[in-house]
Design a protein around this nucleic acid. Structure first.
Lengths: 118, 118
DNA sequence: CTCCTGTTTTGACGTCCATCGAAACAGTGG
DNA sequence: CCACTGTTTCGATGGACGTCAAAACAGGAG
């Protein structure tokens, strides 16, 4: 459970860093926050209207976020609906706790909702 | 308090992203976690021994972390002691909560411990 | 003043990233 | 089959990042 006083293992640090990196861009923060607050699936066009970058850029960001499982995709017809991964809503702040040297009291376990197990 | 359903304002997103970006590197995650767990000031040499990159690299990372106020520096003699910023221990996970569309129940307010108000 | 130790800064190198416009792809409807 | 709409992928461009070795800086001891 990694309760040592030393540094995080390199592999754990790599994984946590990959999560933070997914949110290391303002546009991606906006997208995730938008999907989390709306709490409903949104298609790419809707998202593009909310953040002021081009549509292909939004698509690229969504790809990044989906690869880390922050968002999940659902194809309906020609459109693609993205929604937030509810597991991450609890899990990601826990990661912040761990890095900050706290126990993670919110999400008991995290399975592997964000791990790159695609 | 930003309780809207729309996206985060661009400026807020930029600020949050800058915090996440500070932890978007494995070595920096290790450093922060090390300082948090040790709970005591450590000089650069100690930190270098815990993470396996060169010393100038550690120094560069510490500079990044200090700019975002994740760590604080204290010069004693020729050595420089870095310690975790306790405000961030509570504040940063709250940021994760906000982005994830949650109220931030842990840190009542955050002053401006990490803001670039230097 | 001169060495020594601990740290930051500089310069360089290779890699990754955000963004855009244009092109390719995929369903849907005429 | 063809047009249309929503989305992804491609190619390019400019900028930022992580890392290192070497050089510059600073405080303390002889």
């Amino acid at each position: 459970m990694d309760t040592e006083k030393g540094p995080l293992g390199r592999s754990a640090a790599v994984e946590y860093a990959s999560w933070f990196k997914a949110l290391a861009d303002p546009t991606r923060v906006q997208i995730v926050s938008l999907l989390a607050r709306q709490g409903r699936p949104m298609n790419v066009g809707e998202i593009v209207e909310a953040v002021d970058v081009g549509q292909s850029t939004v698509s690229a960001h969504l790809k990044v976020l989906a690869e880390v499982r922050f968002v999940l995709a659902d194809s309906r017809g020609t459109a693609r609906y993205y929604r937030i991964n509810d597991a991450c809503v609890g899990c990601f702040p826990s990661a912040a706790d761990v890095v900050m040297g706290r126990p993670a009291p919110r999400a008991p376990t995290c399975g592997e909702p964000m791990g790159d197990t695609s």
